[in-house]
Design a binder for these strands. Structure first.
Lengths: 506, 506
DNA sequence: GTGTGGGCAACATGCCGACAA
DNA sequence: TTGTCGGCATGTTGCCCACAC
C-alpha cells in the first residue's frame, strides 16, 4: 500500500482529516493504545483477540509521521513510526510535525442532492467563496461572468472548474468540470468536500471525506481499498497485530491510522493522557465533549454525565483507560454511539475555574523536573514483575512524594475510589473524602454505596496513593498496581460483598 | 468460485468454447496431464515447479463434467471430476456428456471496430442471419422494417436487440440494444461473439469469447476474475497443484479447465492419446494440424514437418509426451506459438491410406480384448518400482507379445529410434529399418546421424520393443521404461558420443 | 443565502444510406 | 457482401433563472 499511497501536504491533510484528529508533535512522548489501533484497523470486536500484553498502553516516542492519501478511495490516512520510550532515549523535542502552521483556509461542505446530481453544478456557500475564492473578479459584465479555477486534489492532480456568480439573487457556482469531478471520485450526496486555499501561495486544494457513518450500507461496496473493504480488513488487522507484537517487545514499529467516524486517535499525546487521568472526577460528574459537526469543519460541545468507569478486570485490556468512561449524554439521541469515551476526550465542568488544571500551571509545576510526566512514564516501563499485564509492583513508591507534590499543585486534593464489579466488569465511581478541593457540586450520588460490588479499586487522585502506600497492612489477597499515577487495587473476587474499607490492601 | 459460477447448457457451452475444445465422454478413460493443467491455470513456467510425480500423465476416468460460466468475465469454463483408473473400476461407458447432440446452429464473429464502436450497431453477416435469424419476416414495408429479438446469454439473462434489414444493398443489423450489450459486457474490437439458435426450440443464445491472444496488453486489466487477473493466478495455481497432488495419490480430484487461446486440453481421451503414440513416425515427417480460424468457428489445416521430439531427460516431466513434438510449419509466421505440440494434436500425412490406423480397424482389432488399451494403461499404473518418475521396470514384458500383435495389426511395422541429447534436451528422430511399411517419402534426413547426441533413446513403434527386450545384454547404466507401448531407454549421460548401437541396454 | 425545479440550448448519441473494399 | 463514413434526427446533458424555504 505504501507503494501506491501518495504524500499529502500536512496542512492539507489535517484540513481534510478534520478537526477531531490530532497528530502529536514529532518526537514527543505519546501513548499507544493497541485497543484503539485494532478498533481503527479491524472490525473484529476487541474482546475476541487473545493477546498477551504486559499493559494495555505503551509509552512511545513518535519518531516519524507520513501524511498520505489512498488513490483508490481518495481518503487520507497517516503512517506513524513509534518506539517504546525510555526517558534516557528521549530525543530533543521538535514540535513541528508540519501541521501546526496556520497557512491554510479551509471550508467543508456536505454535498446536497443537487450538488451530487449528475446534471447540475456545485453551489458554493457565500462564506466559502469569500474565504477560498477570494479575489475573483465578479464585476465582469453579463452575460454570465465566469472564470476558470484550477484546484488540486490530494494527488496534486489539477481539476479545472468553471466558476460563475449569477442568479437572482447572485450566488457562487461551480459548473463545468464539476460533474467530471464527482463522477471520477464517485461522490454521492452526503459525502463531504473540503475546499482549501493556502494563504501564502493562493493555491487551491480540494479533498474529500466520504460518508462512512453508516457502516452496513451499500456504500461499503465502493472500492475503498484501504478503508472498509472486507478483503482488506484482514490485511489491516494482521498489520495491526504485528505492530502490537513489535510494540510489546520494545521494537520500533509502524502504525497506519485512518481518520474516520466512529474510531478514535490511538496515538495520543502523553501529556494529554496524563493530564486527563490526574484530574479529579466522581460519579455523575458533569462533562462535556467537543464533537465535530457533521461537516467536521467546526466542533460542537455536547454535555453529559459520567455514570461509570468500565474496564475489563482481567485479560489483555484489564484496567485500560481506553473508552473507560460510560457517559449518559444530555442529547442521547445524537450521541448514540458515543457512550464509551476515553478520559482525555472529555472536559470536566468545573464551576470554579481554579479547579481546572491549566496548561500554564502545569508547565510551571513541571519546569525542570517533569514530575508528573516522569511519574507515570516510569510506571509504565519500570516493572519487570511478571504478575499480570500491568505493573503490579510497588517498586516505585519511593517516587510518590514527588507525585503527591505535583498533584497538590494541580489542586486535585480530593480522591475517589472506584469499585469494579468483577462480574459486570463495571467500575463505579464513588467520591470519598474531600480535603482541600471544592467539590464540583454535581456529585449527588456521593452516598451511593458500592457495597456489594467492590473488588478492584481504581484510585484516581494521588493522595490516596500515598495513603494506600503507607496505610497498607495486609498482603497476598489484593494486588495493587500503578496506573498513570494512581495505585490500583485488585481484590480477590471472593471478597465481593465486603465493605470498601475492609478491602484488604497490600 | 463455484458458488458464483453458473451452469451453462452443454451444447451452448461447446459452441462458445470453440471447436478445438474436446471434452471426452463421461466415464470414459482419459489421460490427465498435470503439465497441461499448470499451463492452463498459471503463468509460471512449467520448469519452475518442483513436483514429485511417478509419471507425467495419469490415466483417469472422467467421472463428471460441469459446464460453467464465470459471471465476472462472462467466459465459459469446465469443472471435471477425475479419478485414477484401475481397469477393474471402469464404469460402463456412457458416452453422453451432453455436448454430442447436434441441436444447435452457431455462428461466431469477431467484432470489428464498427461493431464495437460506442455509437453503432452490429453488422450481422448474411450467413449468420440466414442460419440464426432464420424465419424473420423481411417483407415488412418501409421505412425500415424491424423486429426485436430476444437473445439469452450464458446466465440466461435475456437481451433485447432491434433487428433491421436495410441499407443499399440490404444487410442485417442489430441496432438498439447492441450498445448496451457491449458496454455491459465490456466488449472491444477483436473480441468474439457467438450467436446460436437451438433447432428444437428456436431459442436464441449469445456468448462471448474475449481476445486474450496478446497476454501483455492492457486488456488484462479487465476484471476477468477467473482468467487472467494476476490476483487469481495464484489461487488457480494452488488449486491445480493440490489437484495434481490428489491425482498422484490416486484420489478423486477436480480440475478447472479454461478454454483459451494458447493452452491445450489437458484431459484427453485415452484412445486418442494411445492412437497417436502408437502411430509410426519419423523425423521430417509431414504432419498437419487443424487449427481454429480466428473466430474459432471453423478449422483450418496447417502443414508442417516434425523436426524433433523434445522432452526433459529428468525431473518430473521426463519423457512426457506433452508438447513433445517440435514442428516447423510451412506457414511459420502464422503458427509462431505452435512450435511445440502433442502427438495427439496432429495428423500424419500418409500417402498410402492403408498406413493410417483407422478407428474401424482399431475396434476390430481390440474387440473383446482391448489389447492396445490395456497394454498402455497397465504400463501407466502397474509399476511399484521407486526408480524415477515413470515405470522403469520390465515387469510387463510378458504382455508384449500381445502388444506386438496389436501393433502388427496396426501395420506399424517399421520402427525408429529417438535420441535425446541430455544437454540440449532435444530428441532427434531417426528412421531405422523399414520392414513391411512403405516409407512416407519425406524422410530426406534418413541418413542424418545423431552421432554425438545420443544418450536417451525413445523408441516408437512396437517391434523395437520386442527386439530391445530380447536383444538387451548390458545392465546398470541404461534405464529403460515403458511409455505408451514403447520402451524408452535412458543412457547414462557420460555415454554421450557413443554410437547408438552401442548404447547399453538393460 | 441556498436548495430545487422547469425551460431550453448546446451537445452527444446512434440510426441512416452512400460508397468502397 | 460488409466495413466505415458523413449526415442528420433524436435524446440527453447541463446551464440558466425563478421560486421557495
Amino acid at each position: 500500500m505504501s507503494i501506491r499511497a501518495s504524500e499529502v501536504d500536512p496542512v492539507v491533510w489535517k484540513a481534510i482529516a478534520g478537526s477531531s484528529v490530532e497528530i502529536p508533535p514529532l518526537n514527543s512522548p505519546v501513548y499507544y493504545f493497541p485497543q484503539g489501533h485494532l478498533e481503527n484497523s479491524s472490525s473484529t470486536p476487541i474482546e475476541n483477540y487473545n493477546l498477551s500484553l504486559k499493559r494495555p498502553f505503551i509509552l512511545c516516542q513518535l519518531l516519524a509521521v507520513r501524511f498520505l492519501a489512498d488513490p483508490s478511495s481518495d481518503q487520507v490516512f497517516a503512517e506513524m513510526s513509534l518506539q517504546q520510550l525510555h526517558p534516557s532515549w528521549l530525543r530533543p523535542r521538535n514540535g513541528d510535525n508540519g501541521i501546526e502552521q496556520n497557512d491554510l483556509f479551509s471550508y467543508a461542505k456536505i454535498l446536497t442532492p443537487s450538488d451530487a446530481k449528475n446534471e447540475g453544478g456545485f453551489s458554493v456557500p457565500r462564506y466559502c467563496a469569500d474565504l477560498i475564492f477570494q479575489g475573483l473578479d465578479l464585476s465582469i459584465e453579463s452575460p454570465t461572468p465566469f472564470q476558470n479555477l484550477v484546484i488540486k486534489d490530494t494527488f496534486n492532480f489539477a481539476w479545472e472548474f468553471r466558476h460563475v456568480y449569477r442568479g437572482t439573487p447572485r450566488r457562487h457556482l461551480l459548473t463545468t468540470g464539476w460533474k467530471r469531478f464527482i463522477n471520477s471520485k464517485q461522490l454521492v450526496a452526503g459525502d463531504c468536500v473540503v475546499l482549501m486555499r493556502k494563504k501564502s501561495t493562493n493555491e487551491l486544494f480540494i479533498g474529500i471525506r466520504r460518508a462512512y457513518l453508516a457502516k452496513n450500507t451499500e456504500r461499503w461496496n465502493f472500492p475503498v481499498a484501504a478503508l472498509g473493504y472486507p478483503e482488506n480488513r484482514k490485511e489491516r488487522e494482521t498489520k495491526a497485530l504485528s505492530a502490537i507484537e513489535a510494540a510489546a517487545k520494545g521494537m520500533a514499529f509502524d502504525v497506519v491510522y485512518y481518520p474516520r467516524a466512529g474510531t478514535k486517535d490511538f496515538v495520543v499525546s502523553a501529556e494529554k493522557v496524563e493530564d486527563s487521568l490526574s484530574i479529579f472526577r466522581n460519579s455523575n460528574m458533569r462533562i462535556k465533549m467537543a464533537v465535530e459537526t457533521q461537516d467536521f469543519s467546526r466542533k460542537f460541545c455536547y454535555q453529559g454525565c459520567v455514570t461509570a468507569a468500565i474496564s475489563p478486570d482481567g485479560g489483555t485490556w484489564a484496567a485500560s483507560p481506553w473508552r473507560m468512561l460510560q457517559v449518559t449524554w444530555d442529547q442521547s439521541e445524537i450521541m448514540q454511539n458515543m457512550n464509551r469515551v476515553s478520559p482525555w476526550e472529555v472536559e470536566y465542568d468545573m464551576p470554579n475555574p481554579q479547579l481546572r488544571p491549566s496548561k500554564k500551571l502545569k508547565v510551571q509545576q513541571n519546569s525542570g523536573t517533569y514530575i508528573c510526566d516522569s511519574r507515570s512514564r516510569l510506571k509504565t516501563k519500570s516493572s519487570n514483575s511478571p504478575v499480570g499485564h500491568l505493573d503490579l509492583s510497588s517498586s516505585n513508591q519511593s517516587r510518590f512524594p514527588a507525585s503527591i507534590q505535583g498533584a497538590r499543585l494541580d489542586q486535585n486534593d480530593s480522591y475517589h475510589q472506584v469499585f469494579i464489579d468483577p462480574v459486570k466488569i463495571v467500575v463505579q465511581l464513588e467520591p470519598r473524602t474531600v480535603s482541600t478541593a471544592v467539590n464540583n457540586g454535581n456529585s449527588h450520588s456521593e452516598n451511593l454505596s458500592p457495597g456489594s460490588q467492590n473488588s478492584v479499586h481504581f484510585c484516581f487522585g494521588t493522595e490516596l496513593v500515598g495513603q494506600q502506600g503507607y496505610n497498607s497492612s495486609k498482603k497476598d489477597v489484593v494486588k495493587s498496581f500503578q496506573l498513570f499515577g494512581s495505585t490500583i487495587q485488585m481484590a480477590d473476587p471472593v471478597e465481593r460483598g465486603l465493605d470498601n474499607n475492609n478491602a484488604r490492601r497490600e
